[in-house]
Design a protein around this nucleic acid. Structure first.
Length: 147
DNA sequence: GCCAACGTTGGC
DNA sequence: GCCAACGTTGGC
């Protein structure tokens, strides 16, 4: 099983919104970055776990855990009703995810940046990538921090 | 809302 | 294939 971190602006779609979709989950659409697309297309598998990260808000950080529940498929939001590609053609893909649980408390970006054991996280090193890998060590360390 | 960082585009 | 211009992300 692999671990990932997905970013979302809570004003657009929050972890609470994902929880509300229960077992049916939500298509993770709208990724328009090649690096993120390649990760979704080539590396993400059903059963992988995901840290759900709230960005661009007053409480930035990791707030919950989700699970990948579909194989990657073509993101339907890249097509109009006639099936024509909207904007940049990029064979964009999406996956479905569902909520597993909230963290006992949010692990803030500030805290992550201040933690030496987490200084190699992609989140710290390449802040803009919206779908990114998390190592097993980082995953477990953050779970401990969240207690 | 500002602005730094970074990804993408496009002229050459 | 370089690189300047431009657009977007995201922390603050």
């Amino acid at each position: 099983m692999n671990y990932w971190l997905f970013k979302s602006e809570p004003d657009e779609f929050s972890f609470e919104d994902l929880v509300a979709t229960a077992q049916s989950g939500e298509p993770w659409t709208g990724i328009r970055n090649y690096q993120a697309r390649n990760i979704l297309r080539d590396q993400v598998s059903v059963g992988d776990r995901v840290f759900f990260y709230h960005s661009s808000c007053t409480a930035v950080g990791i707030v919950g855990i989700a699970e990948i529940i579909s194989e990657p498929y073509l993101d339907p939001t890249q097509f109009d009703t006639q099936g024509n590609v909207i904007g940049r053609a990029g064979q964009w893909v999406c996956v479905d995810i569902k909520a597993i649980e909230s963290l006992p408390r949010r692990v803030s970006l500030k805290e992550i940046k201040a933690t030496p054991a987490l200084s190699d996280m992609v989140l710290v090193k390449s802040g803009r990538l919206s779908v990114q890998p998390v190592t097993r060590e980082e995953w477990q360390f953050i779970l401990k921090l969240a207690q």
